[in-house]
C-alpha cells in the first residue's frame, strides 16, 4: 500500500476539538430534546468555537483537513459515494441538497459561518440570512488551474476560521505527499494516461485541463493523454469513439467507478472499443470513485489512488 495519506493523520482531533465536539454534541441534543429557544443557542455559540456550515464537498473536506468539524454539510447522504475520505464524523448534520439547502435546519442550527461557492450564488441571498457568508471560488472560469485555486481558497478559508497554522501544515503535508507520489511514480516512468467516467455504453466524461485531475497529474508527473481543453469544471463529454483522438498507442485508460452496469459488457461487444489499444488488458484500469469537483483533499485522494495503481499494475 502507499503511504498513510495525510488526511487520516490530521484528522485526529486535538484537545480543543474534543471539548468543542462535546459541547456541540450537547447543544445538538438540546435541540432534539426541544429545550432550545433560539437565544440560548446563540449565547452558547459565543463561547464555543465557530459553528461552521459548509455547502460544498471540497470545502467540507478542507475544513476537516484543518481540524475543524463542520456543524452540518449539504448532500451528506452522498458523501460516501463521491468523497469517501476523510470519513465524516457521525454528528455532522445533513442539510439536504446544496442547491436547496434546508432553510428550516439552517435557522435552527444558528451557524456563525456559512461556506459557499460561485456555483451556489443563486441561493446565497437566501442563505445569507442565517450566518456570515464566506464565498470561496475554486471552480470559476476566471480561476484557471484548479489545484492552485484550491490552495488559495484553503488559505482564505483558514484565515477566516483562525486556522492559518493548520492550513500551512496541511498544505505542506499535501505538498510533501504529492512530492512523494511524484518520486514513486517517476521510478515507474508511466506512459501517458487518460481518465474517464462512463456515462453510458456510448458516452463518457474525460478529464482535461484546467481541471483538478489534470493539475494533479502535472503535479505528480503523469502525462495526461487528453490534451484538449475542457470546460472550467475540468471535463469534456465525448462519445467513446472520440477516444481514438488519443494518438499514443501506449496510453493507459483509467475509468472511475461507479461504472453503470451495462457499460463494460456492451463495450466488450464493440469492435471499435476492442480496437482501442488502451481499452483492454493491461492498459485499461478501474479506480474507486474520486470526486472530480473537489479541492486539495480530493486531489490527494486521486494522487494516492493513481500512485497505488501505477505501483501495483504497471
Amino acid at each position: 500500500m502507499c503511504c498513510p495519506i495525510p488526511i487520516s493523520t490530521h484528522r485526529s482531533p486535538m484537545c480543543g476539538d474534543r471539548s468543542f465536539l462535546t459541547r456541540r454534541h450537547l447543544l445538538a441534543s438540546t435541540f432534539v430534546a426541544g429545550l432550545l429557544p433560539g437565544a440560548f443557542g446563540r449565547a452558547q455559540a459565543q463561547t464555543a468555537p465557530m459553528r461552521i456550515i459548509s455547502l460544498d464537498y471540497g470545502l467540507s473536506s478542507t475544513l476537516l483537513g484543518l481540524g475543524v468539524t463542520p456543524l452540518a454539510i449539504s448532500d451528506r447522504a452522498d458523501w460516501g459515494r463521491w468523497v469517501r475520505e476523510p470519513e465524516l464524523p457521525a454528528e455532522v448534520v445533513d442539510l439536504g441538497s446544496s442547491l436547496e439547502v434546508n432553510r428550516e435546519l439552517l435557522a435552527a442550527l444558528t451557524p456563525d459561518l456559512i461556506l459557499t461557492t460561485p456555483y451556489l450564488d443563486g441561493i446565497s441571498d437566501r442563505v445569507a440570512a442565517y450566518g456570515r457568508l464566506l464565498r470561496l471560488s475554486v471552480y470559476a472560469p476566471e480561476n484557471g488551474a484548479i489545484l492552485e485555486a484550491a490552495v488559495r481558497a484553503t488559505r482564505t478559508l483558514a484565515a477566516n476560521v483562525g486556522r492559518e497554522a493548520e492550513a500551512e501544515r496541511f498544505l505542506e503535508r499535501s505538498d510533501a505527499f504529492f512530492e512523494d507520489c511524484r518520486a514513486r511514480i517517476a521510478r515507474k516512468a508511466p506512459p501517458p494516461m487518460a481518465f474517464v467516467n462512463f456515462l453510458d455504453a456510448r458516452h463518457a466524461r474525460i478529464y482535461g485541463p484546467p481541471g483538478l485531475f489534470d493539475n494533479v497529474l502535472a503535479r505528480i508527473g503523469v502525462e495526461n493523454a487528453w490534451k484538449e481543453p475542457s470546460n472550467y469544471w475540468g471535463f469534456q463529454t465525448i462519445s467513446i469513439e472520440e477516444l481514438s483522438r488519443i494518438q499514443d498507442p501506449k496510453t493507459h485508460l483509467v475509468a472511475f467507478d461507479p461504472i453503470p452496469g451495462d457499460v463494460l459488457p456492451k463495450l466488450a461487444r464493440s469492435p471499435l472499443w476492442q480496437a482501442l489499444p488502451f481499452a483492454q488488458g493491461k492498459q485499461f484500469h478501474v479506480l474507486p470513485p474520486a470526486l472530480m469537483f473537489g479541492m486539495v483533499n480530493e486531489g490527494m485522494r486521486f494522487a494516492r489512488l493513481l500512485t497505488t495503481l501505477v505501483e501495483t499494475r504497471l
Binding site: 456515462l199 453510458d200 456510448r202 458516452h203 462519445s239 467513446i240 469513439e241 461487444r269
Partner: peptide
C-alpha cells in the same frame, strides 16, 4: 453523471 440526459436527448453515437 448525466447519462440519462444524453440519452433522452437522442445521441446517435455508435461504437459497433
Amino acid at each position: 453523471l448525466v447519462s440519462l440526459f444524453i440519452w433522452g436527448a437522442g445521441s446517435l453515437a455508435q461504437q459497433g
